[in-house]
Amino acid sequence: MRRIGGACMKPPVFGYAAPRSAEEALALLSELGYDGKVLAGGQSLIPLLSMRLTAPHTLVDINRIPGLADIVIVEDGSVVVGALVRHAELLADAPAYAALPLLRRATSNVAHPAIRNRGTTCGSIAHADPSGEMTAILALTGGSVQIATSGAENRDVAASEFFLGPLESCLGPGELAVSVRFGAAEPRSGSAFLELARRRGDYAMCGAAVMVTVDEDETVTGVRAAYLSVGPVPAVHDLTAAVAGQHVGSADWGAAGELAATLVEPDGDLHASSDYRRRLVAVLTERALPQAAAEASSRSQEAA
């Protein structure tokens, strides 16, 4: 295993391995334990290395492993995204958009085109940043992460179990997230995604991913939302109580927004205080819900 870095680059010295198969990668990760760190798109890891905020012993580069770059639409409508699928590929994927439009709506807000070209959706989720767009989408859709370990069956961990805290997931030493599965959209549902950042492509001060479900009379039956940058993990909140039984055309979305604001516990930072983030939760929710409701309504009419 080569040890590179240090001599000619900004990061601290690290070892580097580029396995050619998943088996080889898993064996290596198992052997390395806590010393191993998976490198996929590197859009979070490499800056951390360059600023010397992390010093992993060995990087296991999975980019040469075949079979990890597929986007699969499962029969039930869920979307499985392999570990090497770049954000840009998911953004452009028409079947994925047809199955789950929220994927494209959220992915288009992930950083900048250059980062989307290289960064992976799966890696972004494994990074478990609560300001990440795709972590919120995984949580909102009730998705899961498929985790492989050498010598064991893959395990499938629900989003609600996967995220443990800021930049902390249940991925253990020796484990590799081989894919993520975004849960299928419910019938007669619609979605929307809104976020507010200081600059285009920045981490959002707050973001809201929402889903609205209606019945055949276009009465609201379900409202769920997941938020970015307002808690340690992407939290999903059920806001149905605020608008249940109301017609989509006249529902009190503002009430749903106010309900949401009572459910989040955001921290403040340089760019936005706790109070302000809480207010953004209310406003973004109130604005996103009618968009989602309009889509749900039109889906409902198509179904009829």
Binding site: M51, R199, R200, G201, Y203, L270
Partner: peptide, 16 residues
């Protein structure tokens, strides 16, 4: 200096 990187020292780009 808490704005020690371009993540926090927010120079606008053309899109902004």
């Amino acid at each position: 200096l808490t704005t020690g990187t371009f993540v926090d020292y927010t120079i606008p780009s053309a899109t902004d």
